[in-house]
Design a protein around this nucleic acid. Sequence first.
DNA 1: CTGAAAGCGCTTACAG
DNA 2: CTGAAAGCGCTTACAG
Lengths: 345, 345
Amino acid sequence: MTNRKPRPAAVTLKDLAAELGLHPSTVSRILHAEGDTARGAAAPATAQRVRDLARAVGYSPDPQAKSLRTRQTHLLGVIVPRLSDLVLAVMYEGIEEAADAAGYSTFVMNSLDNAEMQRRKTDIMLSRRVDGLIFGDAHLDGDILTELAEQNVKFVLMNRAVQGFPSATCDDALGGTLVAQHLWDRGHRVVSVIAGEPYASTAVDRTSGFVTRWKALGGEIPEAALVWSRFDTIGGRIAAETILSDVAHKPSAIFAVNDFAAIGAMGAATEHGLLVGRDLAIVGFNDTSLAAQLPISLSSVRSPMTEIGRTAVQMLLATINGGPVESVRLAPTLVVRESSAFQRT
Amino acid sequence: MTNRKPRPAAVTLKDLAAELGLHPSTVSRILHAEGDTARGAAAPATAQRVRDLARAVGYSPDPQAKSLRTRQTHLLGVIVPRLSDLVLAVMYEGIEEAADAAGYSTFVMNSLDNAEMQRRKTDIMLSRRVDGLIFGDAHLDGDILTELAEQNVKFVLMNRAVQGFPSATCDDALGGTLVAQHLWDRGHRVVSVIAGEPYASTAVDRTSGFVTRWKALGGEIPEAALVWSRFDTIGGRIAAETILSDVAHKPSAIFAVNDFAAIGAMGAATEHGLLVGRDLAIVGFNDTSLAAQLPISLSSVRSPMTEIGRTAVQMLLATINGGPVESVRLAPTLVVRESSAFQRT
DNA sequence: CTGAAAGCGCTTACAG
DNA sequence: CTGAAAGCGCTTACAG
């Protein structure tokens, strides 16, 4: 259809073989078998000649040809709600690092947390013949995942967990617990939670971790104290508007399950004439790079985002290699800053 | 080395051909030639049978096999400083969209603006046999780019421009101009610029656009008014510290060439007892999603980030198809908000 | 220790 | 209009 020029031919095994007066299969054996295995593959002297030439001419095997034979592409697919969510972008750094170290390359696509897009992007990844997938956008219902598991597609979840599938996540319930304890200790007795999207385990687990501990401490969480919301700044602002406009429930502290939602809540508080860190405590989640740098620095639950990404890759590779894989939950820590440091009297 | 199981075999052309009693080449011709071209490729009835079966069994051609023959992978490489920079993440959304629409898939890697990493990541992309590359991390010296051009690698630049190579960017100088005019009109006469990294055209052009207009209006820009900095929040905070601690040069307004740097500057201002939007005006750049939602909403130059990503893909595809390509500079607009709306008296 | 053959799944001239 | 052959660059039993 288009008349684009093909890329110029690179050096091939055949070229190397011809240059050295060897058969391509011999060259392949030497280059393919690394380290100890290579000893049996060819005479040491031959092996050395081959390797020297390969290095000299910058030989790099054609991955398409290789995977056509081996049926492995060393390609991994990553699907996230959106990469412009800093949390996922940071996790992706961990993925890239770990995948690279293992000789894999990664595709990333945004699904916008929309079921149709999730399917579409997954199909594209599969049509590319990825060896496995990492989903950062799993919904608690898990419908798509069940289908994929039936088709024997290799995948793991990241950031958000779903019952029955391996996942690398933060211990979100623990994070919520830490926040509840902190706010209680600082003297708060009336609180609200900006709870996030109910289809995401992160939102549900952080919220339930908080609620459970709060009640254990003797606190109450009336219906009006839980406001579900989008994960972004606008979502947080809208939720905080709702909370701060409620005349019946007047919290002295707000826990937002996401830093961006917390930032939106800070904006709403300012608009309501409340000084965050004095009139109202706010705590976020993930301790993104912004939290510490805000005009009023934001307390936040620090989750090991990069580590979660790395772990997801390791789990996926284990799955691809046929091993059984256990879900991993990494422990968060609470970082207290100006936004919630004050003692309520 | 590892004993992973190969992925299960998918339906192949041969399978389809056998099922229909045709030769694989016939099936290939029909499926390969789309629309009108297909008419000549086979009898309409045959073509229909083939297409029906292909759809029924969910045939999807093996991209590795296809590209081994055609020497095109329909793979694009994208290298950015880091995806956790929201600006690049949003541009990547445009890239993904446009690439997807054109039947291409994209790899993304972070180079951390480090020359060694840029080389390493580029090599990985090339070893994957990408059809072309988009660089979002170009440095003004352009050393690596010159080498690649000599090797006839197809690429375009995005976000940051370098003389002599095609790029899709915002008209950064114009953005700087808009800010200078705005601050002048609001009555400011002493200003400072948080200028970003001197190796990035974005930083240099935004700054020079600002300075040029400022001087044209009759203003002065002493040496101390320009502070180079990292693009992130911490960088902005440090730069603002320097600016606000200078007893000789007391600006009433700060232009930060990046929203995150602007947010850092807001933090520093607060620490210095200045109320942003009353004692000090601050203007950022890119109008990222956060700007409008901050406790004190941030004025910012809005750049068409998604569009820049899309444009980069279109330019790259044109380059791959052998066409000559012109650089594109998309126009920004200024969005004035609380942080700089006041009139200085 | 090395060579020769077969084949992964496609596409593309070339016949007929 | 359809078939048959060759070949893209690899790997992998199988010989010798």
